[in-house]
Design a protein around this nucleic acid. Sequence first.
DNA 1: CGCCGTTTGTTGCGCTTGCAACACCTCGGC
DNA 2: GCCGAGGTGTTGCAAGCGCAACAAACGGCG
Lengths: 222, 222
Amino acid sequence: MDKCAAAVALEESKLFAGISEEDIKHMMDCSKSKVQKFRTGEIICTFEGSSDKVGVLIGGEAELERVDYAGNRTVLEILAAGDVFGQTLAFGNLTGDMLDVVARSCCTVVFIPADFVSSRCSNACVRHAQFVRNMLGLISGKAQSLSERIEVLSNRSIRDKLMCYFTINCAKARADRFTMPFSFTTLADYICCDRSAMMRELGQMKEDGVVQIDKREVRLIS
Amino acid sequence: MDKCAAAVALEESKLFAGISEEDIKHMMDCSKSKVQKFRTGEIICTFEGSSDKVGVLIGGEAELERVDYAGNRTVLEILAAGDVFGQTLAFGNLTGDMLDVVARSCCTVVFIPADFVSSRCSNACVRHAQFVRNMLGLISGKAQSLSERIEVLSNRSIRDKLMCYFTINCAKARADRFTMPFSFTTLADYICCDRSAMMRELGQMKEDGVVQIDKREVRLIS
DNA sequence: CGCCGTTTGTTGCGCTTGCAACACCTCGGC
DNA sequence: GCCGAGGTGTTGCAAGCGCAACAAACGGCG
C-alpha cells in the first residue's frame, strides 16, 4: 500500500477523523510516518523499552496481549481497523509484564513518531489542532471506559456488579434494554468473577424478575 | 490575587510545568482565563452540563465528590495545589450521578476555556507544544492509575488483591518495601472489600510470613 | 457426515468473605 | 480533664462465591 492509499484509510481512523485526505498526506510527510504490513501472528509492536511511537491500524485485526513472567498470554484488547495503539494508550505495564500487539490477520499499520503529537507545527499548524483534539479524545475515552469498569468492579456482590453493568449500558442506549457486545464467558472476565457463579446469579435474577435475557439482549424490568 | 501572582503559582502546576512565568501570563491573556477564589465548603465546579473548562487549583485543598440520587456524597479524589480538574479529567459520570468539586479550605482557582487546549495558536504557538504535552501527560497518567486499580481489582480473592497492590507499589519504589499513602480503612475501599475481612487476611499473611507490616510500611518477604 | 473447539448451562462442596457488633487507641477541640 | 470522631483490631455466623466437574448445544472444517 502506498502513502496515498494509506492517507485514504487514515481518514477513517479515529486519530485523523475530520482531517482531509490531502492534509493527512501532508502530515504523514511532515512527521515522517511509516506504513508497514504484517502477516497473521506477527508481532506488530512491543512495549518493553520506550518506543515512543503511535500506531494506527488501518487494515486487518490485531490484539493487545500481556505476557507474564511465565509466558502466559492474556488478551487485553481487540483492535480493529481505525483503532490506535501506543505507549501512551497502552497501560498496564505495571507488574513488569511485557505487552505486545499481535496481528490476528493480515494487518496494515501506520507508525507516527510520538513527538509529532505535541510538536511545534511549522507547516501543519491548521490540521494539528484537530489532530490534538482527536488524540485527547481518544485517551480520555480510554480513561472513561476504564473508570466505567472500576465503577462495575467496585460492587461487592456478583448481583450488584451485573446490575451496575446493565444499568450503565441501558443508560448509554437510552432505553430499558441493550445488546451485549460479547459472550457471557467474556462478561464474567469483565466483571472478574467465576463464570458459573455468574450464571447462577443470572438465573436467580431472571427468576426474581429483575431482568429478561434473550440471547445477548438484556432488558431491565422497572 | 492578580494575574501576575497567579502566573507564578501556575508555574508550579502540572499543567504549566516547564513554561516560563512570562509565557504563562501571555497564555492567560490569550485564552481569557479567569482567576477565582472560594471559601471552605463552597462548590467550585459541577459537572452536570457541558461546562467545557479546565480548572487548576493553585491554592488550598479541594475534593472531587460524587452525589448520588439519594444525596449521598462520596469523595472520589483529593485535590491539592497544582492539581488539575475538568470535564475531560473527571470521569465516572456514568450512572447519571452529579459530580462536583468542593473547597476543603480557602481555594484559588484558574479556569481555562477547554478549547484553548487544542486551539490554533496564532500568537502562543511556541509554549502551546509544552502545554499540550502536559495535558496529554496528565490524562494518560490518570488512565495509568485507573488501569493500575483495575489490575488490583481483577484478582478474585482478598489475598491476591493485596499481593497485587503490594507488588505494584514495591515495583514502583524499586524495593521490597514501600509506605502506604493512606489508612487501612481507605485501602479496604481501594480494593473494594470489607475492612474486617481484609484485616483478617492481612493477619493470615503476616502469620504465613509473606509480608511484614510496620505502621504504614509494607515489606514483601522473598 | 463426524470431529473439533468454544460457549452455555447446571450442580455439590467447602472455603472465603461480608456483615454486625464488639473493644481499644489516638488525636484534636472545648 | 472530658468528649467525640476516626482509625485499628477481633470474633461469630451465615451465605455468597470460587472451584471442579460435569452435559449439551453450537459452529467451523475436512
